[in-house]
Write a protein that binds this DNA or RNA. Sequence first.
DNA 1: CTAGGGTTAG
Length: 403
Amino acid sequence: MIPSSLWIKHLPKDWLAKHCTSIPKCKQAHAVLLRAAIFHDNHFASKLISFLAVSPSGDLNYARKIFSHLDSPDVFIWNTMIRGHAKGPNPSDALSFFYLMVHSGVAAEHHTYPFVLTACARLQAPELGMRFHGETVKAGLESDVFVLNSLIQMYANCQCFEAAHKLFDGNPSRDIVSWNVMIRGYVHGGLCQQAFDWFEEMKAKNVGPDAVTVISLVSACSRLGDLERGRSLHSYSSELGFLTNNLKLSNAILDMYCKCGDLVSAWNFFNEMDERDSVTWTTMISGLANSGSFQEALELFGLMQREKVRPDEVVLVIVLLVCARLGALDQGKYIHLLINRYKVKRDIVLETCLVDMYAKCGALDFALQIILFSAFGRVIVVSLAGCSLPFDSLEDFNVVYVP
DNA sequence: CTAGGGTTAG
């Protein structure tokens, strides 16, 4: 048998980095590390962990599992775990990892703070963010542009605009991202006019703006239903060439036309797009559905199928709602079949929509079947329309009205 | 290795 230390030398140096591109491949890499008895080597484990924790097609739980077997993770690995959790569904886990790291004797550094501050921003926890702010000052990191921008973002997203301004005003380290996070914070808090004012000031000062700036402003127009301003941001974007190779901006503009009720412009824009992803399709389909064009929404979903775009849970929710609205049982059953065929993640929203669709289509036996086999125990069926509900708060429940 | 963006029910 080849000694493991020799065997691993035959792997190209970047084998792991290139290899960790999907969950099954990570499992292989994991096995290789175990066999080669280098699983506890931070250098190798960190490649695995960074894919699993940070990549959108990763798996945070798997990353945690691997992490828990490491003897003494270095600061890079800790940062990666904090980063993954800050962006994940439970940002407070990022803070738990931060405290675990500090308690294990590994000191936070300039890479660490942007991640914990992101977690604070998402948790709307400015008091906690202020504590980290203090730590960055003590560590002399406040002028690091990454730390600075994540501090501004944290305050702006928590609607602490005075604190955000204090950091922003006249700060020599600030850049285009500092402007963008301020604007984003205003839009997030519904203060859209302030966001537009900042945009004007930016242009006056010859800073940026870039595609990210425009996305925030376009989404402000969607919220306000401000078609005129949305349209002018659209032409502004094409003039400056922001629309080429920027699906996120294109999707935001498409959504803006839909939310502003201009389905004709939306449809034209959709047809002119040279690249579309599942969000593009979802946005257009939901635009049709929300404007009452239920049949057209289903037809476009059919086209999406023929174009072989994998439906995600969001678009399935929308078409299920359409089926419920139309009482289209056969189409609804077909959507149910697609959910199984594509192994779409069945979250509580999707599950509830399935129950809702079957119930509204009069197929109560199917609706009950879903409830019986549901992984979510809190799906409630209220079997008579108009009856009052015996709960003070519906937050913990998903209620389905059966007509 | 790091910061900022779009779609989601009842």
